[in-house]
Every structure is written in C-alpha cells, then in structure tokens.
Amino acid sequence: MFLEIESLTMQFGGIYALKEVSLAVEQGEIHGLIGPNGSGKTTTFNVVSGYYKPTSGSIRFEGAGITGLPAHKITAAGFARTFQNLRLFSSMTVLDNVLVGMGHHAKTGLWREILNPAAVRREESRFVGDAIHLLELFGIAGLADHPATGLSYGEQRRVEIARALATKPKILLLDEPAAGLNEVESDELRGTLKSIRDSGVTILLIEHDMKLVMGVCDVITVLDYGRKIAEGPCESVSGDPVVIEAYLGKEDEP
C-alpha cells in the first residue's frame, strides 16, 4: 500500500480530534477527504505531514514507518502540502517562493558553497530553469519577479501549488485549494488536479466544494467528529445516508 494510516488517534487535552481513523491511499489516485467543519480533516493532514505527533496509531508510506517524523523529513520522504490559509513567503518574489521548494534537492551545504561555488551556481541556474518551467505550467511565469504579496487570490493559490510541486513530491496534500476561487478558477483547478495526477503525483484532497470533489476524486473518505464514517467511490458516498446526516443533520422524527 502506498500511504497507509492505521487507527490514528490525536488527542488535545481531553478532546479527540481524531479517533482511530484508518485510511489507505493508493498510488495514482485522487483521494478526497471530506466532512463538516471540525471533523478532523486538517488535523489528519497535520499529523501525516509531521506537525503533530499522534497520540497513537501509525502511518506508513511506501512500506516505511513515518509516524512522528519531523515535517522536513516527511517532505524528504516524498510529501508536499499546502495550507488552508494562503501562506506564501510574502516578501519574496514568486520565483523565490518556488525556489525555496526546490532547495532540499540541492546538495548544497555551507562547505560546498564555500569550496565549490561554481558547481553550486550551475545547480542554482538549473533550479531557476525548472522553477520557471513549473510556473509556465501554471500560467504564471510572467509573474516570476513579482513579490508574492501583490497577487490575486487565484494566482496565489497557483503559486502555492507550484511551490508544493517544486519539492518533487510523490504525494500532494491539498487543504481546501478551491477556497476563495470563483467558478472559472475552480474549473481550471479541476483540470490542474487531473494533470498533476496524470504526471504521476498522488493527491489527497481536503475540499468543501462538492462539485470539485465529485468531479475529480477517485475515492472519498468522510470524517465526522474525528471518526471515519464512510469511504468509497463518489456515487456510493454521496448517496450514503450516514454522510447525508452528518452534513445536513438528522431528519426530524414525526
């Protein structure tokens, strides 16, 4: 199994943010993670990507245990993620934002920078080329030298995803990428997600925009109050009475 989360529990004080959640993501799929607000979706991301150490449970990626590793090691293992609230390096240019993501592939250390500056420069110019190429794929190469802070919401979203892809991940965790996007941008995002998947990157997607979720996801997992309440292909999940109840509340009994 590609990514295997087993009976993951995350407790804050006396409150269970996640309780025994198990989840399996197969390579090459777009896996939706949905649920009402506060159901534990972002907590799942934060545990998987190394920001929280889980109270119990295990996470395995490509057969290796990664539970409790620090975030930068999870990234090195092949994960990338975006955050719910846009968090670009605002005083850097768009290009630098993407370059930061490429950094951890560099062999650069302080010593190498001092002893072999020529090799480091060559590597850097290659990185710049790769970064520009990524920006071209997202149609924002023209903004490369703009400071990230002046961009529109949709552009910032694209920079954020490009930056995440710059780490060359095997799996991409997207936390509400459609939030704040208009209809057109949201449609574009659907195409983007599919082409990312087709390029060989598995996607785990948190999203409230159901049209987008139903349009791109191969499998959906539904959380509610920190527990998994349903899992399966779109059609079966969207018709599941338990899921409908979680979203809309129980029908009043006569």
Binding site: R87, F89, G101, G103, H104, V120, F127
Partner: peptide, 30 residues
C-alpha cells in the same frame, strides 16, 4: 545563495519552511 534563501524562508514562516523540506532547527543554528 540558495542556503540564504532557505534561511530567509525559515525565518519568515517555520511551518511552511519545514513543509518545503527545510530543517528549521538547523537554519536557526546557522
């Protein structure tokens, strides 16, 4: 320098920097 960019990124936002694979503690040490 790329290391310099990583240091600036790490100073700006610890969470994002580590999501980008930057070892924040090592940047602080540097």
């Amino acid at each position: 320098g790329k290391l310099g960019v990583a240091m600036r990124a790490s100073a700006m936002d610890h969470d994002i920097a580590s999501a980008m694979g930057i070892p924040v503690n090592r940047m602080n040490a540097l």
